[in-house]
Nucleic acid binder design. Structure first.
Length: 271
DNA sequence: CGAGCAACCTGCATGC
DNA sequence: TGCATGCAGGTTGCTC
């Protein structure tokens, strides 16, 4: 799925097409996502204007006068602008049809995503209220990670992938950021020094910002709001490169499993 | 409380 | 060609 850069890319891609546009109709072909799409989505949206499109962590928010639609893309979801002449493909689960005929089309083969009606206070929704800070904000800094990590025995990689600690760092960018910061993925979070957290925070911010600039990472099927893939894949140093040589020191990169996720690191550059 | 992991679902690559 | 297996960008919710 989309990690934060892919969700941000989607947000920016659809924004000019949907902000200040009114909704004509909603077609739900498959309501069974991670949680069922409630009847309110089809009932309340028609006739409303989308005031703003925003993002919180990996959630996209369509802000309407009466409330907010929360959209998560799960592992395989995408949200893009389609023209009415385009044929409907397998796994095109929802169309939000605008009055000008453009379609905001939700596609998600694995259906790990969701589309929920959140009411007028979306940030107080149970799925959003306990999220950690945005990684590109000033609230995400060394002190934040250092303080929360004391007495935590979990691996540093799992720690930074926990959305209650910081949002938006998924498996690809966790691997990349730890490589850039020179930290072994299974080091205990509580044993990482302040100096290392300074490096890690800087690496996370840099990598996410660069990935956003390049339109995200497309592994298989990710497309942004304009239907185009992202180009960050060519910048990956370790993710997907287990068994290949480290780009810095030529040592063979190690691949392990951590928290059920594939984890790649350089045994020499990371400690 | 924290840590670890099963589960949700489809598609695809691999191996027999 | 077919079938079984394992893996994939995420996150909740369960057990211990």
């Amino acid at each position: 799925m989309p990690e934060l850069p892919e969700v941000e890319t989607t947000c920016r891609g659809i924004r000019p097409h949907v902000e200040n546009k009114s909704i004509r109709e909603v077609i739900v072909r498959q309501p069974q996502l991670r949680w069922p799409i409630s009847a309110e989505i089809s009932r309340l949206l028609p006739g409303q204007r989308i005031k703003k499109v925003s993002r919180r962590g990996k959630y996209l928010l369509l802000n309407l006068a009466a409330g907010c639609v929360l959209i998560h893309l799960g592992m395989s979801g995408s949200l893009r602008i389609a023209k009415k002449s385009e044929e409907i493909k397998k796994h095109d689960h929802v169309d939000i049809i605008l009055k000008n005929g453009d379609i905001l089309r939700y596609h998600d083969p694995r259906r790990f995503g969701c589309m929920l009606w959140a009411g007028a206070q979306p940030l107080k929704h149970v799925l959003l209220e306990k999220l950690g800070p945005e990684p590109l904000s000033d609230d995400f800094n060394m002190n934040h990670l250092f303080t929360l990590s004391r007495k935590r025995s979990a691996a540093i990689k799992n720690f930074i992938m926990d959305s209650h600690i910081v949002v938006g760092v998924g498996n690809i960018y966790a691997n990349e950021a730890l490589f850039a910061a020179g930290i072994k993925p299974r080091r205990q979070a509580g044993k990482v020094s302040k100096a290392s957290y300074i490096k890690l925070v800087a690496s996370i911010k840099k990598i996410l910002a660069e990935a956003i600039e390049q339109g995200g990472t497309t592994l298989r099927d990710f497309v942004g709001g304009d239907g185009k893939p992202g180009y960050f894949k060519q910048s990956l140093s370790v993710y997907g490169r287990g068994g290949e040589n480290c780009l810095k020191c030529q040592t063979v990169l190690k691949e392990i499993r951590l928290g059920q996720r594939s984890t790649v690191y350089c045994p020499k550059c990371q400690s």
